[in-house]
Amino acid sequence: MKRVWTLLPLAVALAACGDDGAGTSVSIKGDDGNTLASVGKDGRVEIKAPGFEGSVKLPKFAFGADDFEVDGLKLYPGSTIANLNVDSSGGNDGSVKVDFDAPAAADQVQSWFREQMQSAGFTVDLKNGALAGKTGDGSPFSLKVTPQGDGKSRGSLTVTGN
């Protein structure tokens, strides 16, 4: 759960930066599976913790490829993050799931990720059309990329604790 609390200031700081884009939502879940903090695409920050519960409206924010990294791996260049979910429930190190929109065709994005992952020391296999394997530190991951129209795609990257 300590990891969850270290991400909360980041979420609030990003929300405070403001942006005129579509916005990004962030959700952080605790050991019991309940949401501890969330930041909606509209900038509403909600915190629920033992002894404290509150909500505040901040400017809408968005962040993208340069604002996210897993074991040295960034998102496809020009991507924007639609949703970021951190879940520390389940008795392990939890999981991080990021949904992102990429400005390229799905096969191009998937090929780029495969090359970047292999360069970063990930083990990578193709399973049912998705990339799966382990990060450089041994955490299991999966990446599914789907077409979203001409020259666009939506990706979903999930990394779980080991």
Rank of each mutant, 00 (worst) to 15 (best):
V56G: 15
G138M: 06
V12D: 00
P77V: 05
S156H: 09
G138D: 02
T146K: 12
G21Y: 09
T35C: 13
P103R: 05
S38E: 03
K57W: 01
T80D: 10
P140H: 01
I28C: 10
W5T: 13
G94Y: 04
S27D: 07
K2C: 05
S119V: 11
L126A: 12
M1P: 04
S142T: 15
P147H: 13
F113A: 13
L14S: 12
P103Y: 11
G33I: 15
K144C: 07
D93S: 12
P59Q: 03
F68D: 01
A132Y: 06
V145Y: 00
A62Y: 11
I28M: 02
R114Q: 08
V4P: 02
V98E: 03
P140M: 03
T135G: 06
F113L: 10
N83T: 15
A37Y: 02
P147S: 07
L84P: 01
V124D: 10
S25N: 00
N92M: 08
K152P: 12
S153C: 12
G72S: 10
A65S: 15
L84I: 03
G90Q: 12
G133C: 06
F113W: 06
G51H: 06
F122D: 11
K60F: 04
V124T: 02
V96E: 01
M1K: 04
S142P: 10
G129E: 10
G43A: 04
G40V: 14
V12K: 00
M1T: 14
T123A: 11
G138V: 04
R114T: 02
D99M: 10
G23I: 00
L75E: 03
A65T: 14
T158V: 12
G30S: 11
D87Y: 01
D101I: 02
K57T: 08
N34R: 13
S156T: 15
N92T: 06
R3P: 09
V12R: 00
L84G: 04
G121F: 02
V26E: 00
S55D: 14
L157M: 04
K74E: 13
K134G: 08
S142A: 08
G51L: 06
G30R: 03
A15I: 01
L8P: 09
F52V: 01
P50R: 04
R154C: 09
V26A: 02
T80L: 09
D150S: 15
G149W: 11
K134A: 07
I47T: 03
G161H: 05
V4G: 14
F63P: 03
V26C: 02
D99W: 15
A106I: 00
A82Q: 05
G91W: 07
I47W: 01
Q110L: 15
M117N: 05
V109F: 09
M1A: 10
T80Y: 04
D150G: 14
K97A: 05
V96W: 06
D93F: 15
S95T: 15
T158A: 10
L75F: 13
K134M: 05
A132G: 08
N85R: 06
S119L: 14
V26L: 02
A13I: 10
V39A: 04
G129A: 03
G136K: 05
S95D: 15
G40Q: 13
A102K: 07
N34I: 10
L131D: 13
F122R: 04
V86G: 08
R114E: 14
A130C: 10
K57P: 04
G151W: 00
S119F: 04
F63W: 12
I47K: 00
K134I: 09
L14G: 13
D125S: 09
A16W: 08
K57M: 13
